[in-house]
Nucleic acid binder design. Structure first.
Lengths: 346, 346
DNA sequence: ATCACTCATGAAAACCTTTTCATATGGATA
DNA sequence: TATCCATATGAAAAGGTTTTCATGAGTGAT
């Protein structure tokens, strides 16, 4: 069935040695035009395709890369993966995608798998702030790039979004829309993305001379249910009368939860409560009201991560030379943040 | 750096031959207890890990598998992938995930990539009804399983959902809810899933003695926008007065489009229009009104596909022996199908 | 004590490339 | 014409396993 045809068969058919065939295929040394054409013809005739395993064994390189993300079904990460995948394919490289489901031991196992597969490099979004996985790859001498989340314990090349700036943008937007009492729903602690968005919120309050009020902040976990619970918490803390008139929610998924819970409680978004999220997932456009959100160039992030990684692999394998790229974000204004629309509008 | 330690180093350290070390590691032949323990110790001491490339070269097997889906960010497929991934990992096998973005040439390229990587087998959801990709794998002698969509042109082992039955379930459900004039929004033609759901709709009408009306059917493409357009088409065909009072929509994504478009047009769901979708994607639960949908055991499908595939690989490589598994679906009742709730309800 | 046989082990081949090193050929230079 | 170089090519080694085949030691039977 499969192609049993080896480089030796080609050599024989072309009347040359295997070495010469190899040279033609890889363009690794000068070959006379006459023999080259003979070899090319033989390759075509026999339908020769190099044996990946032998190649890998000899060259000690798999030409396969790994990508580890916490949740493949999260549109943010699937877009990121697409960016990376497209770039890898452009370079004729293969890709192993790993989904850790946010579990630390699964991340660990995925890392071991990538090591076993002897990938030439990896792009990782750590499940937690701790970066055991990245460290393991590090130890094995496998080039690795962090993406979206910044590892705390180690200097490492990273591609990030400007999360603090995003937090500022979101908060200012609500202020401009006329909100006076702006709350925040946080993401899981220990994740740089979540922390920095919150930092942006505080910074923005400070810059406009407002005092930070702890009762306007609730803890979430980046999930839909977590968003619902966090909003209930805010209602409990402040009462129906003193509710915030605007909330910056650390990601879109939770913001959708807030919309639903508000609906259940008879609180109208955006008339009584304005909302801004982060990530610009597909859902945000489809929900009612459509969600205003801070959008990051996710697809590009994937591409840039690959560029950085390939540079590491091909040019400078020294992992000590780390660098950082922080991508700008932009606000996508939709209806959820049109606070007081009723009053102004009609 | 990396582990340069080879099986020869281990052999030397243990005072045995490489052959013996191999036998211990793979448990491929009897080894005396005394030497076995020596070898095990040496392996531990040196931190030996077999070289994947050499192993693959010698065994002519990569222990890597491929999964090809049209859209990794579609929750249906990411759940499927998770089922497959978990099962592969249980068997200590690696997985290359490919996203064709529904494009035929991308599918083609992904297939070539899997062939290049010499995967031991593949699970494929073809982008189109045509199955060039699957055929290529076939030709290469790579075991392959079709999942979700049934290849038309070739007999092949497949794991499917009972789409016709689902179509019947959905239609009957609307009838039971009191709908009299039930429409259908189709998926892309040529995709077995879409065709069969439509067939179920027709069958259900027939069984209850209703006549099929072409003006109640519109063409969609499985996307959100496509759903909106298809609904507009229905409005155009029937006019506001003669609109269907219930629509079976060939997948959830389009159904969400219908909800949005209906909202824009001031048509209330489910009071004036009842809806049922298929797939039970996350979004269906989060939208307002929550969408009634026919749910398939997606995660299990992934697992079963792997089981079938491994059986093919390990037991019976003869691809001529194909078999089919059709999984039962169930209806998840939510608010979008509570037709006339206002009238009956309160 | 010899033969037949089992069982554990080692040597070497095989898997298929790539790459180093050596060689032959031809042309240019002295 | 002899010498030197460059250039194209081939032979062989290396990469790290697994597996076949051979061998040697031990066991039980005659």
């Amino acid at each position: 069935m499969g192609d049993e045809v080896t480089i030796m068969d080609v050599a024989e058919a072309a009347g040359v040695s295997p070495s010469t065939v190899s040279r033609v295929i890889n363009d690794s040394a000068p070959v006379s035009e006459s023999t080259r054409s003979k070899v090319v013809k033989a390759v075509d005739d026999l339908g020769y395709r190099p044996n990946k395993f032998a190649h890998a064994l000899r060259k000690q390189t798999s030409e396969v890369f790994g990508v580890i993300v916490p949740d493949i079904s999260n549109p943010f990460f699937s877009t990121l993966i697409r960016g990376a995948e497209d770039r890898f394919h452009e370079n004729d490289l293969s890709l192993i995608i790993c989904d850790t489901k946010g579990e630390l031991d699964k991340e660990q196992r995925n890392v071991e798998m990538l090591i076993k597969e002897r990938v030439d490099g990896a792009i990782v979004t750590s499940a937690e702030g701790e970066v055991d996985g990245i460290c393991r790859l590090f130890e094995e001498g496998i080039p690795v790039i962090a993406v979206d989340r910044e590892p705390t314990s180690r200097e490492i090349t990273a591609v990030l979004t400007d999360d603090e700036g995003s937090g500022v943008q979101a908060t200012q937007h609500l202020m401009e829309k006329g909100c006076r009492r702006i709350g925040f729903i946080r993401g899981p602690s220990g994740i740089s993305t979540a922390e920095k968005r919150f930092a942006g919120y505080r910074k923005s309050l400070e810059e406009s001379g407002k005092t930070f009020k702890p009762e306007l902040v609730a803890q979430g976990d980046f999930t839909f249910e977590g968003g619902k619970r966090a909003f209930e918490e805010l209602v409990r803390l402040n009462g129906r009368e003193e509710l915030p008139d605007g909330i910056v929610v650390a990601n879109d998924m939770m913001a959708v939860g807030v919309i639903r819970k508000a609906e259940e409680l008879g609180i109208e978004v955006p008339e009584d409560l304005a909302l801004v999220g982060f990530d610009d997932i597909l859902l945000s456009r489809l929900i009612n009201p459509p969600l205003t959100t801070v959008s990051a160039p996710t697809y590009e992030m994937g591409q840039i991560a690959v560029d950085f990684l390939l540079e590491k692999v091909e040019v400078d394998r020294d992992m000590a030379n780390s660098r950082k790229k922080v991508l700008k974000t932009h606000l996508v204004e939709r209806r959820s943040s049109q606070y007081g629309a009723r009053r102004n509008g009609y």
